[in-house]
Write a protein that binds this DNA or RNA. Sequence first.
DNA 1: TATTAAATTGTCATATTTGACAATAAATCC
DNA 2: GGATTTATTGTCAAATATGACAATTTAATA
Lengths: 200, 200
Amino acid sequence: MGRPSKKEERTEEILNAFYRCVARFGLEGSTLERIAEESGLKRSLVRHFVGNREELTGLLVDRVLQQSDEQWSAFMAMLPAQNGSHFLLDGLFSDQHSDPEFVMVIESLIFAAGRDDDMRKRMQVWMQSFTNDVAVILQKDYPDATTESIAAVSYGLISLYFNLDSLAPLGMNQQYRQPARTAAEYLLQTLESASSGKGA
Amino acid sequence: MGRPSKKEERTEEILNAFYRCVARFGLEGSTLERIAEESGLKRSLVRHFVGNREELTGLLVDRVLQQSDEQWSAFMAMLPAQNGSHFLLDGLFSDQHSDPEFVMVIESLIFAAGRDDDMRKRMQVWMQSFTNDVAVILQKDYPDATTESIAAVSYGLISLYFNLDSLAPLGMNQQYRQPARTAAEYLLQTLESASSGKGA
DNA sequence: TATTAAATTGTCATATTTGACAATAAATCC
DNA sequence: GGATTTATTGTCAAATATGACAATTTAATA
């Protein structure tokens, strides 16, 4: 009995508000006051439902990494059996798929990870698995490529993609997306020429 | 007459302390208290010599960008007439030349630039001229390469370099430096094959 | 030594952020 | 309606960051 709990919905609202705040003000700039205002709730309620600042950020990291994994898994599932590499480029470098809020949140978390051991470990794992997945995709298209070249190109593609994120605060994304994509294609071509097989 | 002014030395000490604080705590985490503690001065003195927070950060940005420009200019001046591209790779991707503190400060400034119009403009100019300089170096070695390919490879090299910075908070630099350099070499090779002339 | 200009110290007021908790209101079940 | 559980509001205290300024000390010169 008793009054029905709104904990789940409220937690959802609060984390969404937190997410938006982090995208705009960074993690440190996202005070409980701001989160409360953004979610339309009183600060006391934010504390009541989610807890203190530490628990709040923990839940946000959970949420962001999980959503990122889900979207990435969905993307991977859509990859064609052959030629997934070029499909990957479309996913990483087309204007349409870019999400400025997500970009800024990830940037904020990476930045904050520098001063938070737990967060750093979790982001490391996240980044590592991302890199590995890309390597697997490449290896499938270029089975004859060496491990080193696959690793280099994987890291290269991810760098080109992430650098668009990193420089996002400077607002030069529009200007840099095309060269980023072209450079990514160059890297892929490197694997083609080295590989004997079925490179696209 | 009167007591001799220590403004210059003190300002120097304070900005150095500020620099170290930003590398460790980020810009927002570098409170006047911390800067004072780090410099061994009272907070009142920090205010006395440098001014309020806004002037302080303005001076720090001056300092960092100027030092960066100086070092970059010095590096450019050392470039050989031919084959500067490979010399560039050594400069960007060798362990020895990496400066973790500088990396973190630049990261902090780029990040903060997202919420500071003046800083953003200054960082844009800085980044732009960096990109241009790289393009000029490449064009000299690969005169037959198209403008697009030069732009793409320039951005690619810079991405590989900067991404090491961006991921620095995750502490994976050691792991990623080698693939970064290999990918950079791949990008250069692309220009070689496209160019008819004197590529190394 | 007296004067002067600057360094240095110390203090007060204010705003912000956060944590803790009491008090009230609302919804559900018996 | 009464009991119970939770949402919701409101308030107080502590910590921190900053700005402003008075008071004192120090080091030069005349």
